[in-house]
Design a binder for these strands. Sequence first.
DNA 1: AAGGGTAGTCAAGTTTCTTGACTAATAGGT
DNA 2: ACCTATTAGTCAAGAAACTTGACTACCCTT
Lengths: 158, 158
Amino acid sequence: MVKVLDDNADDGPDHIGWRLWQASRLWQEDFVAAMGAAGHGWMTDARATLLGHIGRNGTPQSRLIARMGISKQAVQQLVDGLEGEGILCRVPAPNDKRARIIAHTPKGRAALRDADRIKLEIEERYRRALGEEQLSALKAALAWLSRETGGKNPARRG
Amino acid sequence: MVKVLDDNADDGPDHIGWRLWQASRLWQEDFVAAMGAAGHGWMTDARATLLGHIGRNGTPQSRLIARMGISKQAVQQLVDGLEGEGILCRVPAPNDKRARIIAHTPKGRAALRDADRIKLEIEERYRRALGEEQLSALKAALAWLSRETGGKNPARRG
DNA sequence: AAGGGTAGTCAAGTTTCTTGACTAATAGGT
DNA sequence: ACCTATTAGTCAAGAAACTTGACTACCCTT
């Protein structure tokens, strides 16, 4: 009879995928919490990700779709929600009557400033703990993973 | 009139949180795809995360809840699903008539073997690309982030 | 002007995770 | 033994973040 011993009783799994998931989740929790504390209670993980892809002068919705690796309908629904919150607005594109530019409202720009500040604060916290060298290595490694494994993500299908 | 120039037209945002999210997502995509190819088409991101927390000899549901940082109902539903797929089963705990041990079925153990292999394959791919040194640095940095920022996660409420 | 690809919308459904309300068993103090 | 608080788990309902499928409107090429 085998002794009933839980072989990962201590601290959970240990493969790199789990660590990535965990770290990502914790970063987002931190970020959303800090944004909430700064008065932007509407912020969520998914919205933060979307907003990160929108430039200061706006970004065509089609480009958001191409970049984010999720379906165009998902992007649309996220934008719908943020439009409803008064953070984003859709303006017609000058060249193409089909296209819309997703841009920040004044309220959105205020949130953007706070978000940028908070991102830097979190990164600074990481830097203090890991040290400049290890943080740089982390960023470099993640950059490779995003580029190499993610480069082939062909905007999905329709 | 400002020139309409999208300031992140090239490759998206660049803060560490986004990189973590991206890397995590790509790992999971790889893993789920490889598991699907190995005949385990029922595998999803969330299920992979849950299964990673279950020891070879089973793990009490309450411990899963404490570890995973999600609500007990979420764990329950995930387990329900995997029980329905024939991957997991709930056996009564010997000491405590309330408790249930979540354990693998034979089918679940087969999946576990494939999962372990695939995790190693993905990690090996990362190792070839990043080199041993950079991969170690990545793992060390992620370990810190999980431990330090995540240690205070008090099993939520509920 | 015709046909094919692109930009976006509408509708409906799935997965994953949430809060709230509940039952049953255990643990501790009196 | 008895009451109470805590712990383990379930049931029900719902929100968030996605998905596929079907559609319209526009652009570009031939």
